[in-house]
Design a binder for these strands. Sequence first.
DNA 1: TTAATGTGTGCATATATATGCACGCTTTTA
DNA 2: TAAAAGCGTGCATATATATGCACACATTAA
Lengths: 136, 136
Amino acid sequence: MDNDNQEETRQHRDAMQSALDVLDTRYFKALCEPTRVAIIKNLIRIGACDVSTIAQGLAQDRSVISRHLSILETAGITTSRKRGRQVFYDLDGPYIVQKLTLILEAIKPMAEICKPFEEYDQRTIPTRKAMKKLRE
Amino acid sequence: MDNDNQEETRQHRDAMQSALDVLDTRYFKALCEPTRVAIIKNLIRIGACDVSTIAQGLAQDRSVISRHLSILETAGITTSRKRGRQVFYDLDGPYIVQKLTLILEAIKPMAEICKPFEEYDQRTIPTRKAMKKLRE
DNA sequence: TTAATGTGTGCATATATATGCACGCTTTTA
DNA sequence: TAAAAGCGTGCATATATATGCACACATTAA
């Protein structure tokens, strides 16, 4: 299948490109913090709400929650609106789903391209000769 | 629409539950580190490869890359296989896609439930009376 | 067998991030 | 107008994570 090599290279390059475009570190960073996930949980439960109320069930100080909400907003996960002296935050459901959909679409080709060893035989691992070439 | 309240509550509760079940902090944590993303990029480009070669294009020490690979493996993103004195790592494309698919499916209802303010009018924000109730 | 190569891990350290408190600002309430 | 409530931010600090080096272990090469 040596004549497939070029096509496969292009396939790899395209997959890499779209995967990289979509691997938004900031988005994942926003979602990898336990307290922020707890905030999201609260917002799903009680809907649009002001900072103090959101912070109520949580262990951290209100100011800390305020910062987390800011991070979530920067990542596009929440939106805010001011009313009087309080600021209401809410989840941006449509954006969250859209973002995740884009990521999935971009990543999908990897299911075909990057199959783990188990589904292959030894040949998946580069030969020693090929390894030497990679080193140069 | 007061008679919809109960149904809506159930809808919220279900959405919250499935969202929480799927918000795997470890998975997102693995993907939120720039160096780890760089490793993933390399793996897409060159396929299954040993640690030293993967580390070659990167700024960090080989031992650091080794640790990152371990984290990625714990998250299910990579798999490893030993051959002689070297250990080959590879992306687990199918698992990555499957995991992301599950997350998306669980999150999807939020697009309907958690619409941000812009699509609503003032009533989305709890009344002052409702706020008082929440505080109790 | 001896030397060389490839890995992972303990350890100390650097860097990033989360946290709490105090404060100033704005808006509401009395 | 004065007091109170709700927010966000500066700052110091705690905690988590990433990094590099040295080393021990396993495997291969000479």
